[in-house]
Design a protein around this nucleic acid. Structure first.
Length: 430
DNA sequence: TCTGGGGTCCTAGGACCC
DNA sequence: TCTGGGGTCCTAGGACCC
Protein backbone atom coordinates (compact mmCIF):
# COMPACT_ATOMS: atom_id res chain seq x y z
CA UNK A 1 0.00 0.00 0.00
CA UNK A 2 1.58 3.27 -1.03
CA UNK A 3 2.07 5.66 1.87
CA UNK A 4 0.55 8.64 0.06
CA UNK A 5 -2.91 7.07 0.22
CA UNK A 6 -3.12 7.20 -3.52
CA UNK A 7 -4.86 3.85 -3.82
CA UNK A 8 -8.52 4.12 -4.69
CA UNK A 9 -11.12 2.34 -2.61
CA UNK A 10 -13.65 0.27 -4.49
CA UNK A 11 -13.43 -1.01 -8.02
CA UNK A 12 -11.92 1.00 -10.85
CA UNK A 13 -12.93 0.13 -14.37
CA UNK A 14 -11.85 1.41 -17.72
CA UNK A 15 -13.38 1.03 -21.12
CA UNK A 16 -10.92 0.91 -24.01
CA UNK A 17 -12.69 1.53 -27.29
CA UNK A 18 -11.16 1.64 -30.75
CA UNK A 19 -11.91 4.87 -32.61
CA UNK A 20 -14.00 4.30 -35.75
CA UNK A 21 -12.74 0.75 -35.69
CA UNK A 22 -13.57 -0.59 -39.16
CA UNK A 23 -12.49 2.63 -40.83
CA UNK A 24 -9.25 2.60 -38.81
CA UNK A 25 -8.55 -1.00 -39.88
CA UNK A 26 -8.92 -0.02 -43.53
CA UNK A 27 -6.62 2.91 -42.96
CA UNK A 28 -3.95 0.88 -41.21
CA UNK A 29 -3.25 -0.88 -44.52
CA UNK A 30 -4.06 1.90 -46.93
CA UNK A 31 -2.48 5.15 -45.77
CA UNK A 32 -3.99 6.97 -48.73
CA UNK A 33 -7.24 6.90 -46.71
CA UNK A 34 -5.72 8.94 -43.88
CA UNK A 35 -7.22 12.38 -43.51
CA UNK A 36 -9.99 11.55 -45.98
CA UNK A 37 -13.60 10.66 -45.20
CA UNK A 38 -14.11 6.87 -45.20
CA UNK A 39 -17.26 4.79 -44.77
CA UNK A 40 -17.55 1.02 -44.37
CA UNK A 41 -20.67 -0.81 -45.53
CA UNK A 42 -22.56 -3.70 -43.97
CA UNK A 43 -22.77 -7.10 -45.65
CA UNK A 44 -24.26 -6.94 -49.12
CA UNK A 45 -23.14 -3.29 -49.24
CA UNK A 46 -26.50 -2.42 -47.68
CA UNK A 47 -25.97 0.11 -44.90
CA UNK A 48 -23.25 2.40 -43.65
CA UNK A 49 -21.96 0.79 -40.46
CA UNK A 50 -18.74 2.70 -39.79
CA UNK A 51 -17.48 6.19 -40.54
CA UNK A 52 -14.16 7.93 -40.10
CA UNK A 53 -14.29 11.20 -38.18
CA UNK A 54 -14.15 13.13 -41.47
CA UNK A 55 -17.21 11.20 -42.72
CA UNK A 56 -19.03 11.97 -39.47
CA UNK A 57 -18.13 15.63 -39.85
CA UNK A 58 -19.76 15.59 -43.29
CA UNK A 59 -22.98 14.59 -41.55
CA UNK A 60 -23.24 11.01 -42.83
CA UNK A 61 -25.34 9.15 -40.25
CA UNK A 62 -24.78 5.67 -38.85
CA UNK A 63 -26.83 2.76 -40.14
CA UNK A 64 -28.49 4.47 -43.09
CA UNK A 65 -29.05 2.69 -46.42
CA UNK A 66 -26.05 3.20 -48.66
CA UNK A 67 -28.07 3.72 -51.83
CA UNK A 68 -29.77 6.76 -50.31
CA UNK A 69 -26.42 8.39 -49.62
CA UNK A 70 -24.49 7.26 -52.66
CA UNK A 71 -24.87 10.52 -54.62
CA UNK A 72 -23.78 12.56 -51.60
CA UNK A 73 -20.84 10.22 -51.03
CA UNK A 74 -19.72 10.52 -54.66
CA UNK A 75 -20.05 14.29 -54.60
CA UNK A 76 -17.92 14.55 -51.49
CA UNK A 77 -15.30 12.04 -52.64
CA UNK A 78 -15.87 9.78 -49.67
CA UNK A 79 -13.90 6.52 -49.82
CA UNK A 80 -16.13 3.45 -49.61
CA UNK A 81 -15.21 -0.04 -48.42
CA UNK A 82 -17.25 -3.25 -48.16
CA UNK A 83 -16.89 -4.83 -44.74
CA UNK A 84 -13.91 -7.15 -44.42
CA UNK A 85 -14.57 -9.19 -41.29
CA UNK A 86 -11.50 -11.44 -41.45
CA UNK A 87 -9.33 -8.31 -41.36
CA UNK A 88 -11.29 -6.63 -38.52
CA UNK A 89 -11.33 -9.83 -36.47
CA UNK A 90 -7.59 -10.23 -36.69
CA UNK A 91 -6.91 -6.56 -35.90
CA UNK A 92 -9.22 -6.86 -32.92
CA UNK A 93 -7.16 -9.77 -31.55
CA UNK A 94 -4.00 -7.70 -31.88
CA UNK A 95 -5.47 -4.77 -29.96
CA UNK A 96 -6.86 -7.03 -27.23
CA UNK A 97 -3.53 -8.77 -26.83
CA UNK A 98 -1.70 -5.49 -26.18
CA UNK A 99 -4.34 -4.46 -23.63
CA UNK A 100 -4.25 -7.84 -21.88
CA UNK A 101 -0.47 -7.69 -21.59
CA UNK A 102 -0.63 -4.40 -19.71
CA UNK A 103 -3.47 -4.68 -17.17
CA UNK A 104 -4.34 -7.44 -14.67
CA UNK A 105 -7.69 -8.35 -16.19
CA UNK A 106 -9.69 -7.53 -19.29
CA UNK A 107 -13.15 -8.45 -20.45
CA UNK A 108 -13.45 -8.35 -24.22
CA UNK A 109 -16.86 -6.78 -24.66
CA UNK A 110 -17.11 -6.56 -28.42
CA UNK A 111 -14.92 -6.58 -31.48
CA UNK A 112 -13.68 -3.06 -30.72
CA UNK A 113 -14.15 -2.65 -26.96
CA UNK A 114 -12.79 -4.11 -23.75
CA UNK A 115 -13.40 -3.36 -20.09
CA UNK A 116 -10.24 -3.26 -17.99
CA UNK A 117 -9.92 -3.80 -14.26
CA UNK A 118 -7.62 -1.11 -12.89
CA UNK A 119 -8.50 -1.58 -9.22
CA UNK A 120 -5.02 -2.68 -8.22
CA UNK A 121 -3.24 0.32 -9.77
CA UNK A 122 -2.47 3.41 -7.67
CA UNK A 123 -4.92 6.15 -8.53
CA UNK A 124 -2.06 8.62 -8.73
CA UNK A 125 -0.81 8.73 -12.28
CA UNK A 126 -3.56 6.44 -13.55
CA UNK A 127 -4.62 8.80 -16.31
CA UNK A 128 -1.07 9.11 -17.63
CA UNK A 129 -0.61 5.38 -17.35
CA UNK A 130 -3.63 4.84 -19.61
CA UNK A 131 -2.38 7.47 -22.02
CA UNK A 132 0.83 5.49 -22.33
CA UNK A 133 -1.18 2.32 -22.96
CA UNK A 134 -3.26 4.04 -25.59
CA UNK A 135 -0.11 5.20 -27.39
CA UNK A 136 1.33 1.72 -27.20
CA UNK A 137 -1.75 0.20 -28.83
CA UNK A 138 -1.52 2.70 -31.65
CA UNK A 139 2.18 2.14 -32.18
CA UNK A 140 1.90 -1.63 -32.20
CA UNK A 141 -1.33 -2.09 -34.16
CA UNK A 142 -2.02 1.14 -36.05
CA UNK A 143 -5.42 1.42 -34.36
CA UNK A 144 -6.22 4.58 -32.35
CA UNK A 145 -8.15 3.98 -29.13
CA UNK A 146 -9.82 6.02 -26.39
CA UNK A 147 -9.95 5.06 -22.73
CA UNK A 148 -12.55 6.09 -20.16
CA UNK A 149 -12.00 5.44 -16.46
CA UNK A 150 -14.72 5.23 -13.80
CA UNK A 151 -15.98 3.47 -10.66
CA UNK A 152 -18.59 1.53 -12.65
CA UNK A 153 -18.79 0.15 -16.15
CA UNK A 154 -21.50 2.65 -17.05
CA UNK A 155 -19.38 5.60 -15.88
CA UNK A 156 -16.34 4.17 -17.68
CA UNK A 157 -18.50 4.19 -20.81
CA UNK A 158 -19.55 7.78 -20.11
CA UNK A 159 -15.92 8.82 -19.64
CA UNK A 160 -14.96 7.12 -22.85
CA UNK A 161 -17.60 9.05 -24.70
CA UNK A 162 -16.43 12.32 -23.18
CA UNK A 163 -12.82 11.45 -24.04
CA UNK A 164 -13.79 11.02 -27.68
CA UNK A 165 -15.70 14.29 -27.62
CA UNK A 166 -12.76 16.37 -26.35
CA UNK A 167 -9.58 15.84 -28.34
CA UNK A 168 -7.59 17.94 -25.86
CA UNK A 169 -7.90 15.12 -23.30
CA UNK A 170 -5.46 13.06 -25.33
CA UNK A 171 -7.82 10.13 -25.68
CA UNK A 172 -8.19 9.43 -21.95
CA UNK A 173 -10.78 10.71 -19.49
CA UNK A 174 -10.80 9.78 -15.80
CA UNK A 175 -14.11 10.22 -13.98
CA UNK A 176 -12.36 9.71 -10.62
CA UNK A 177 -10.27 12.85 -10.91
CA UNK A 178 -11.44 15.53 -8.52
CA UNK A 179 -11.54 18.14 -11.23
CA UNK A 180 -14.37 16.31 -12.98
CA UNK A 181 -17.73 17.70 -11.84
CA UNK A 182 -20.81 15.50 -11.62
CA UNK A 183 -22.66 18.14 -13.61
CA UNK A 184 -20.75 17.05 -16.69
CA UNK A 185 -23.40 14.32 -16.94
CA UNK A 186 -25.82 17.11 -17.81
CA UNK A 187 -24.09 17.52 -21.17
CA UNK A 188 -24.79 13.93 -22.17
CA UNK A 189 -28.09 12.97 -23.77
CA UNK A 190 -29.85 10.20 -21.89
CA UNK A 191 -29.97 8.16 -25.11
CA UNK A 192 -26.17 8.09 -25.10
CA UNK A 193 -26.06 6.26 -21.78
CA UNK A 194 -25.13 2.57 -22.01
CA UNK A 195 -28.36 0.57 -21.71
CA UNK A 196 -30.72 3.35 -22.81
CA UNK A 197 -31.82 2.86 -26.39
CA UNK A 198 -34.10 4.97 -28.55
CA UNK A 199 -37.32 3.48 -27.11
CA UNK A 200 -36.39 4.01 -23.48
CA UNK A 201 -34.92 7.38 -24.40
CA UNK A 202 -38.28 8.54 -25.73
CA UNK A 203 -40.18 7.22 -22.71
CA UNK A 204 -37.73 8.85 -20.32
CA UNK A 205 -37.97 12.10 -22.26
CA UNK A 206 -41.72 12.16 -21.78
CA UNK A 207 -41.08 11.92 -18.02
CA UNK A 208 -38.78 14.94 -18.17
CA UNK A 209 -35.58 12.91 -18.02
CA UNK A 210 -33.44 14.22 -20.86
CA UNK A 211 -29.81 14.00 -19.76
CA UNK A 212 -27.59 11.47 -18.01
CA UNK A 213 -27.67 13.79 -15.00
CA UNK A 214 -31.49 13.69 -14.90
CA UNK A 215 -31.35 9.91 -15.00
CA UNK A 216 -28.68 9.70 -12.32
CA UNK A 217 -30.86 11.82 -10.01
CA UNK A 218 -34.03 9.80 -10.58
CA UNK A 219 -35.37 7.32 -8.04
CA UNK A 220 -34.04 3.80 -8.79
CA UNK A 221 -37.12 2.03 -7.39
CA UNK A 222 -39.44 4.18 -9.42
CA UNK A 223 -37.40 3.41 -12.54
CA UNK A 224 -37.63 -0.27 -11.73
CA UNK A 225 -41.42 -0.12 -11.38
CA UNK A 226 -41.82 1.97 -14.48
CA UNK A 227 -39.36 0.12 -16.74
CA UNK A 228 -37.24 -2.78 -15.60
CA UNK A 229 -34.49 -3.89 -13.32
CA UNK A 230 -32.01 -2.96 -16.07
CA UNK A 231 -32.91 0.72 -15.99
CA UNK A 232 -32.67 0.70 -12.20
CA UNK A 233 -29.17 -0.73 -12.42
CA UNK A 234 -28.19 1.94 -14.93
CA UNK A 235 -29.37 4.66 -12.51
CA UNK A 236 -27.32 3.14 -9.71
CA UNK A 237 -24.25 2.72 -11.90
CA UNK A 238 -24.44 6.40 -12.89
CA UNK A 239 -24.47 7.18 -9.16
CA UNK A 240 -21.27 5.20 -8.64
CA UNK A 241 -22.66 1.90 -7.31
CA UNK A 242 -21.28 -0.94 -9.40
CA UNK A 243 -23.94 -3.45 -10.46
CA UNK A 244 -22.05 -5.10 -13.30
CA UNK A 245 -18.82 -6.81 -12.25
CA UNK A 246 -16.03 -7.41 -14.70
CA UNK A 247 -16.54 -10.79 -16.31
CA UNK A 248 -13.32 -12.70 -15.77
CA UNK A 249 -14.33 -15.54 -18.05
CA UNK A 250 -16.40 -15.29 -21.20
CA UNK A 251 -20.08 -16.13 -20.75
CA UNK A 252 -20.78 -19.45 -22.47
CA UNK A 253 -22.70 -18.79 -25.66
CA UNK A 254 -26.19 -20.14 -26.15
CA UNK A 255 -26.57 -19.89 -29.90
CA UNK A 256 -24.57 -19.74 -33.10
CA UNK A 257 -26.34 -17.98 -35.94
CA UNK A 258 -25.37 -17.67 -39.57
CA UNK A 259 -27.60 -15.73 -41.91
CA UNK A 260 -27.17 -13.38 -44.87
CA UNK A 261 -29.30 -11.35 -47.20
CA UNK A 262 -28.94 -12.41 -50.82
CA UNK A 263 -27.30 -10.25 -53.45
CA UNK A 264 -30.49 -10.73 -55.46
CA UNK A 265 -33.87 -12.29 -54.53
CA UNK A 266 -34.07 -16.09 -54.72
CA UNK A 267 -37.16 -18.22 -55.40
CA UNK A 268 -35.90 -21.72 -56.26
CA UNK A 269 -35.68 -24.33 -53.55
CA UNK A 270 -32.36 -25.71 -54.85
CA UNK A 271 -30.66 -22.33 -54.49
CA UNK A 272 -32.05 -21.75 -51.00
CA UNK A 273 -30.82 -25.19 -50.03
CA UNK A 274 -27.33 -24.34 -51.22
CA UNK A 275 -27.30 -21.20 -49.12
CA UNK A 276 -28.62 -23.05 -46.07
CA UNK A 277 -25.89 -25.66 -46.48
CA UNK A 278 -23.20 -23.00 -46.77
CA UNK A 279 -24.45 -21.17 -43.65
CA UNK A 280 -24.72 -24.42 -41.72
CA UNK A 281 -21.10 -25.22 -42.65
CA UNK A 282 -19.97 -21.85 -41.31
CA UNK A 283 -21.97 -22.24 -38.09
CA UNK A 284 -20.67 -25.80 -37.54
CA UNK A 285 -17.10 -24.63 -38.06
CA UNK A 286 -17.60 -21.96 -35.41
CA UNK A 287 -19.02 -24.58 -33.07
CA UNK A 288 -15.96 -26.80 -33.47
CA UNK A 289 -13.56 -23.90 -33.12
CA UNK A 290 -15.06 -23.18 -29.71
CA UNK A 291 -15.22 -26.86 -28.75
CA UNK A 292 -19.01 -26.90 -28.59
CA UNK A 293 -21.82 -29.18 -29.68
CA UNK A 294 -25.42 -28.30 -30.54
CA UNK A 295 -28.59 -30.33 -30.30
CA UNK A 296 -31.07 -27.96 -31.90
CA UNK A 297 -31.05 -26.73 -35.49
CA UNK A 298 -33.39 -23.96 -36.50
CA UNK A 299 -33.82 -22.81 -40.10
CA UNK A 300 -35.55 -19.57 -41.01
CA UNK A 301 -36.40 -17.74 -44.20
CA UNK A 302 -38.09 -14.49 -45.14
CA UNK A 303 -39.04 -12.35 -48.10
CA UNK A 304 -37.94 -8.71 -48.35
CA UNK A 305 -39.94 -6.80 -45.70
CA UNK A 306 -39.18 -3.51 -47.49
CA UNK A 307 -41.11 -4.61 -50.55
CA UNK A 308 -44.68 -4.09 -49.40
CA UNK A 309 -46.00 -4.58 -52.91
CA UNK A 310 -44.81 -8.19 -53.01
CA UNK A 311 -46.36 -11.16 -51.17
CA UNK A 312 -44.67 -11.58 -47.78
CA UNK A 313 -43.77 -14.82 -46.06
CA UNK A 314 -41.53 -15.71 -43.13
CA UNK A 315 -41.26 -18.92 -41.20
CA UNK A 316 -38.93 -21.15 -39.22
CA UNK A 317 -38.55 -24.84 -38.47
CA UNK A 318 -36.77 -26.64 -35.66
CA UNK A 319 -35.06 -30.02 -35.66
CA UNK A 320 -33.92 -31.68 -32.45
CA UNK A 321 -31.05 -34.13 -32.77
CA UNK A 322 -30.76 -37.24 -30.60
CA UNK A 323 -27.36 -36.09 -29.32
CA UNK A 324 -25.45 -32.77 -29.40
CA UNK A 325 -23.08 -32.75 -32.38
CA UNK A 326 -20.80 -30.52 -34.45
CA UNK A 327 -20.53 -32.80 -37.50
CA UNK A 328 -21.27 -30.69 -40.58
CA UNK A 329 -22.98 -33.34 -42.76
CA UNK A 330 -25.41 -34.29 -39.99
CA UNK A 331 -26.22 -30.66 -39.22
CA UNK A 332 -26.72 -30.00 -42.94
CA UNK A 333 -29.10 -32.94 -43.09
CA UNK A 334 -31.19 -31.56 -40.23
CA UNK A 335 -31.16 -28.06 -41.70
CA UNK A 336 -32.27 -29.11 -45.18
CA UNK A 337 -34.97 -31.24 -43.62
CA UNK A 338 -36.26 -28.14 -41.82
CA UNK A 339 -36.04 -26.06 -44.98
CA UNK A 340 -38.15 -28.61 -46.85
CA UNK A 341 -40.88 -28.14 -44.25
CA UNK A 342 -41.14 -24.36 -44.53
CA UNK A 343 -40.23 -23.69 -48.16
CA UNK A 344 -43.08 -22.40 -50.29
CA UNK A 345 -42.74 -21.69 -53.99
CA UNK A 346 -43.87 -18.45 -55.56
CA UNK A 347 -42.13 -16.10 -53.13
CA UNK A 348 -39.04 -13.98 -53.66
CA UNK A 349 -36.81 -14.70 -50.69
CA UNK A 350 -34.32 -12.13 -49.48
CA UNK A 351 -32.77 -13.93 -46.58
CA UNK A 352 -32.38 -17.36 -45.03
CA UNK A 353 -30.44 -18.46 -41.98
CA UNK A 354 -29.52 -21.17 -39.55
CA UNK A 355 -29.39 -21.08 -35.77
CA UNK A 356 -27.70 -23.77 -33.71
CA UNK A 357 -28.89 -23.92 -30.09
CA UNK A 358 -29.00 -26.17 -27.01
CA UNK A 359 -25.25 -25.81 -26.93
CA UNK A 360 -22.93 -27.73 -24.60
CA UNK A 361 -19.13 -27.96 -24.30
CA UNK A 362 -17.89 -31.02 -26.19
CA UNK A 363 -15.99 -32.50 -23.26
CA UNK A 364 -19.20 -32.85 -21.25
CA UNK A 365 -20.86 -35.20 -23.72
CA UNK A 366 -20.19 -38.90 -23.90
CA UNK A 367 -21.01 -39.63 -27.51
CA UNK A 368 -22.39 -42.83 -28.90
CA UNK A 369 -19.72 -44.76 -30.78
CA UNK A 370 -22.07 -45.34 -33.69
CA UNK A 371 -23.48 -41.83 -33.86
CA UNK A 372 -22.27 -39.13 -36.26
CA UNK A 373 -19.62 -37.98 -33.80
CA UNK A 374 -17.53 -41.15 -34.00
CA UNK A 375 -13.73 -40.81 -34.17
CA UNK A 376 -13.62 -41.14 -37.94
CA UNK A 377 -16.10 -38.34 -38.63
CA UNK A 378 -14.39 -36.22 -36.00
CA UNK A 379 -11.09 -36.71 -37.81
CA UNK A 380 -12.74 -35.72 -41.09
CA UNK A 381 -13.95 -32.45 -39.58
CA UNK A 382 -10.47 -31.79 -38.17
CA UNK A 383 -8.97 -32.22 -41.62
CA UNK A 384 -11.52 -29.88 -43.22
CA UNK A 385 -11.03 -27.25 -40.50
CA UNK A 386 -7.27 -27.63 -40.73
CA UNK A 387 -7.21 -27.02 -44.48
CA UNK A 388 -9.58 -24.08 -44.26
CA UNK A 389 -7.64 -22.66 -41.33
CA UNK A 390 -4.39 -22.73 -43.25
CA UNK A 391 -5.56 -21.79 -46.74
CA UNK A 392 -8.59 -19.68 -45.92
CA UNK A 393 -12.30 -20.24 -45.65
CA UNK A 394 -13.95 -22.15 -48.51
CA UNK A 395 -10.73 -23.75 -49.71
CA UNK A 396 -12.53 -27.02 -49.00
CA UNK A 397 -16.34 -26.95 -49.01
CA UNK A 398 -19.24 -29.36 -48.93
CA UNK A 399 -20.63 -29.86 -52.41
CA UNK A 400 -24.16 -29.21 -51.10
CA UNK A 401 -23.11 -25.64 -50.34
CA UNK A 402 -22.50 -24.95 -54.04
CA UNK A 403 -19.54 -23.75 -56.05
CA UNK A 404 -20.88 -20.89 -58.15
CA UNK A 405 -22.98 -19.44 -55.33
CA UNK A 406 -25.24 -17.19 -57.38
CA UNK A 407 -26.95 -16.13 -54.14
CA UNK A 408 -23.86 -14.68 -52.51
CA UNK A 409 -23.83 -11.16 -51.18
CA UNK A 410 -22.44 -8.18 -52.97
CA UNK A 411 -19.11 -6.80 -51.87
CA UNK A 412 -18.17 -4.35 -54.54
CA UNK A 413 -15.45 -2.48 -52.65
CA UNK A 414 -13.69 -5.15 -50.63
CA UNK A 415 -10.17 -4.59 -49.37
CA UNK A 416 -7.71 -7.47 -49.15
CA UNK A 417 -7.39 -9.78 -46.14
CA UNK A 418 -3.98 -8.29 -45.39
CA UNK A 419 -3.28 -10.21 -42.21
CA UNK A 420 -4.96 -13.58 -42.68
CA UNK A 421 -4.17 -14.70 -46.26
CA UNK A 422 -0.65 -15.28 -47.52
CA UNK A 423 -1.63 -14.31 -51.05
CA UNK A 424 -3.12 -11.00 -49.90
CA UNK A 425 -0.29 -9.70 -47.71
CA UNK A 426 0.63 -6.06 -48.24
CA UNK A 427 3.73 -5.59 -50.37
CA UNK A 428 6.48 -3.27 -49.17
CA UNK A 429 8.59 -1.52 -51.79
CA UNK A 430 11.98 -0.02 -51.02
C1' DT B 1 -32.51 -1.32 -58.50
C1' DC B 2 -30.39 -0.61 -53.86
C1' DT B 3 -32.30 -1.20 -46.60
C1' DG B 4 -26.60 -5.90 -42.09
C1' DG B 5 -25.70 -9.54 -38.79
C1' DG B 6 -25.15 -11.66 -34.40
C1' DG B 7 -25.98 -11.69 -29.86
C1' DT B 8 -28.13 -11.06 -24.68
C1' DC B 9 -31.54 -10.35 -21.05
C1' DC B 10 -36.15 -9.27 -18.98
C1' DT B 11 -41.11 -9.61 -18.55
C1' DA B 12 -45.78 -11.08 -18.82
C1' DG B 13 -48.87 -14.58 -19.36
C1' DG B 14 -50.32 -19.32 -19.79
C1' DA B 15 -49.89 -24.22 -18.60
C1' DC B 16 -49.18 -27.31 -15.27
C1' DC B 17 -48.28 -29.33 -10.75
C1' DC B 18 -49.02 -30.11 -5.90
C1' DT C 1 -73.08 -25.18 -1.84
C1' DC C 2 -68.32 -24.93 -1.55
C1' DT C 3 -63.99 -23.39 -6.25
C1' DG C 4 -56.71 -21.45 -3.04
C1' DG C 5 -52.29 -20.33 -3.70
C1' DG C 6 -47.63 -20.82 -4.70
C1' DG C 7 -43.93 -22.51 -7.56
C1' DT C 8 -41.86 -23.67 -12.01
C1' DC C 9 -41.32 -23.92 -16.76
C1' DC C 10 -41.98 -22.35 -21.35
C1' DT C 11 -42.77 -18.99 -24.92
C1' DA C 12 -43.35 -14.75 -27.40
C1' DG C 13 -42.38 -10.22 -27.59
C1' DG C 14 -39.75 -6.34 -26.56
C1' DA C 15 -35.81 -3.97 -25.28
C1' DC C 16 -30.93 -3.47 -25.46
C1' DC C 17 -25.86 -3.96 -27.19
C1' DC C 18 -22.08 -3.50 -30.97
Amino acid sequence: MPSDDSRVCGPVYALADCNNFYASCERAFDPSLCGRPVVVLSNNDGCIVARSSEAKALGIPMGVPYHEWEPFIRRNRVCVRSSNYPLYGDMSHRVMRVLAQNVPMIEVYSVDEAFLNLSSFPSKGLTDRMRTLSNMVFRWTGIPISIGIGPTKTLAKVSNRLAKRSPDLGGVMNWLEESVPEELLGTLNVKDVWGIGSRLGRSLGSMGIHTALDLMRSDPQRMRRHFSVCVMRTVMELGGTACYPLGDSPVPRQTVVCSRTFGADVSEYAVLREAICAYTSVAAEKLRKEHLLARMVQVFLMTNPFHNDQPQYANNAVRMLPLPISHTPALIQAATDGLKEIYQGGYRYKRVGVMLAEIVPDHLVQTDLFAEENPKSKRLMQVVDGINGEWGRNTMVFAAAGIERPWKMQQRSLSRRFTTRWDELPIARV
